[in-house]
Structure formats: structure tokens, C-alpha cells
């Protein structure tokens, strides 16, 4: 499964401290944890799979052996949470 940001409807606003994500249609503003914000930031514009995002994060943060720590699975469950909030969609 591939995911992409609902770019027309979502505004990401990194603030000192935390990142905010505003869904224009629902009117809700979500406060994102650091990890979630990193996942959204790593999400390629055309969309990406949890494994691809995992690879990007692994490089960016110099994590080793992504699969061993269950990174892909945890990214996928985060993306599903974001999907329920209308921040990302399945590409």
C-alpha cells in the first residue's frame, strides 16, 4: 500500500516545540509527535510505501537495520492513523 499527503487540504506548520497539521475541510488541527512529523516529512510527493518511507528515514536519521526494529510496521500503523484523520490518503 502506498500513501500520499492530501496536499490540497492539509497545511503542515512546524513550530518550535511541535508540528501542527491543519485539515482544511474537517477544520481540525492535529498536534503531531516528532516521529509522526518525520514520517509526513519523508512522504514523497507522488506517494510512497511504508518500506520506502522507512528507507528514507533510515538514511536521514542514520538508523541501522530498519526491518529488525519493526520500523516498517510502525510507519504503516502511523500512516493508517493519519489516514483516519484525513491527513494522508492511499495513493
Amino acid at each position: 500500500m502506498r500513501y500520499r499527503l492530501r496536499a490540497d487540504e492539509v497545511r503542515i506548520e512546524p513550530l518550535a516545540g511541535l508540528t501542527l497539521a491543519h485539515q482544511r475541510l474537517s477544520g481540525e488541527t492535529h498536534v503531531l509527535s516528532e516521529e509522526t512529523a518525520a514520517i509526513l516529512d519523508a512522504l514523497p510527493e507522488r506517494g510512497g510505501s511504508p518500506a520506502e518511507i522507512g528507507r528514507i528515514l533510515t538514511e536521514r536519521f542514520e538508523i541501522v537495520e530498519a526491518e529488525d526494529v519493526g520500523l516498517t510496521g510502525s510507519i504503516e500503523s502511523r500512516l493508517e492513523e493519519l489516514r483516519a484523520l484525513g491527513l494522508v490518503e492511499r495513493a
Partner: peptide, 8 residues
């Protein structure tokens, strides 16, 4: 907008 989202 909120209803559009709810419909989605």
C-alpha cells in the same frame, strides 16, 4: 467543508 469531510 466539515460535512464534505464527514461524507468523505
Amino acid at each position: 467543508d466539515r460535512i464534505r469531510f464527514e461524507i468523505d
